[in-house]
Simulated assay, not measured.
Amino acid sequence: MELFEKESLNIDDLQVWKKDALEKFEAKMVDKEQRFPCIPATQGHSLNHLRYGFVGDPREVSSAEELANLLSAYTPQSKNYGKYTSLIIFYETPADLSKTSVEEFEQMFWKQLSWASEFDSIEWPENIPVDPHDSAWEFCFQGEKYFMYCATPAHQNRQSRYFPYFMLAITPRWVLEKFNSSPSLAQKIKSNIRERITHYDSISIHPDLNSYGEEDNFEWKQYYLHDDDSALSKCPFHRMLNTMKREE
């Protein structure tokens, strides 16, 4: 699998769906009238710190293996890409998924993470609990801690979580730590992000949005937000520890 960067990518060489996904993502990042809420994401885009990858159908185990390969390529190089870097993953999203609900996409999301974890060649970090219901848990791959963001074609009320293709934005924890290294600036940007969300979405900010490190914060609840204020009571992520017992 190949990682791409915006400035060196010849978009006309891509398959139609890949070209369409990139063009729609670009439009979302540069829209000045309806400004995308995540300010660091728009900065990462404008500075060419983001990297991109394409994988197959989100229902398939093979797509999770492709995701794992992209993460394996991205992780050791991420600190060379810039302080606002994230890995943007676009999934091929066939027409027969057009009627898929937010909740059904949610199950695909967690299966993709669980399956991808099975292809990780490095052990889970010792200082990170394996139980998502521990407030210190976060998704890890190749020894790196990551924050996950998922957008789907099914989201309507939360346009901040809408994208015409099933999509992941994967941000290393070190990026977020740098962002938070200046508490006053970070708080100002977070306030601006929340203000943008209120204008971007037609629904109030989800109650599960919180800050990493807080005792009442659970990262997994923020990875995938419902299109209302509801949430799962239990995290579906399951590390299979290379048992190869997948639910097809």
Results as ranks from 00 to 15, higher is better:
Leu3Phe: 15
Phe4Leu: 15
Glu5Phe: 15
Asp12Val: 03
Asp12Gln: 11
Asp13Lys: 08
Asp20Val: 04
Lys24Phe: 00
Ala27Asp: 06
Met29Pro: 02
Asp31Lys: 05
Gln34Met: 05
Gln34Thr: 04
Asn48Gln: 11
Gly56Ser: 11
Asp57Ala: 14
Asp57Phe: 15
Pro58Lys: 04
Val61Lys: 13
Ser62Trp: 01
Ala64Pro: 00
Ala68Met: 11
Ala68Leu: 14
Tyr74Ser: 04
Ser78Met: 03
Ser78Pro: 01
Lys79Pro: 01
Lys83Arg: 11
Ile88Met: 15
Ile89Thr: 02
Tyr91Glu: 02
Tyr91Lys: 01
Pro94His: 09
Thr100Phe: 13
Val102Lys: 02
Glu103Asn: 12
Phe105Leu: 07
Glu106Asn: 10
Phe109Trp: 10
Phe109Arg: 01
Trp110Ile: 04
Gln112Leu: 12
Ser114Gly: 12
Trp115Leu: 01
Glu118Thr: 03
Phe119Asn: 01
Ile122Gly: 02
Glu123Ile: 10
Pro125Leu: 05
Asp131Trp: 05
Asp131Gln: 08
Asp134Leu: 05
Ser135Thr: 11
Glu138Ser: 13
Phe139His: 00
Phe139Thr: 03
Glu144Ser: 06
Tyr149Trp: 13
Cys150Tyr: 12
Thr152His: 14
Gln156Asn: 12
Gln159Met: 11
Pro164Gly: 10
Leu168Asp: 02
Leu168Arg: 00
Thr171Trp: 01
Arg173Gly: 09
Arg173Tyr: 14
Val175Asn: 05
Glu177Gly: 08
Leu185Cys: 00
Leu185Met: 06
Gln187Asn: 12
Gln187Asp: 11
Ile189Gly: 06
Tyr200Phe: 13
Ser202Asn: 15
Ile203Asp: 00
Asp208Pro: 07
Ser211Gly: 08
Gly213Glu: 14
Asp216Asn: 12
Asp216Pro: 07
Asp216Glu: 10
Phe218Gln: 04
Lys221Thr: 04
Tyr224Gln: 05
Asp227Cys: 08
Asp229Gln: 15
Ala231Pro: 04
Cys235Trp: 12
Cys235Val: 12
Cys235Met: 10
Asn242Ala: 05
Arg246Ile: 13
Glu248Val: 09
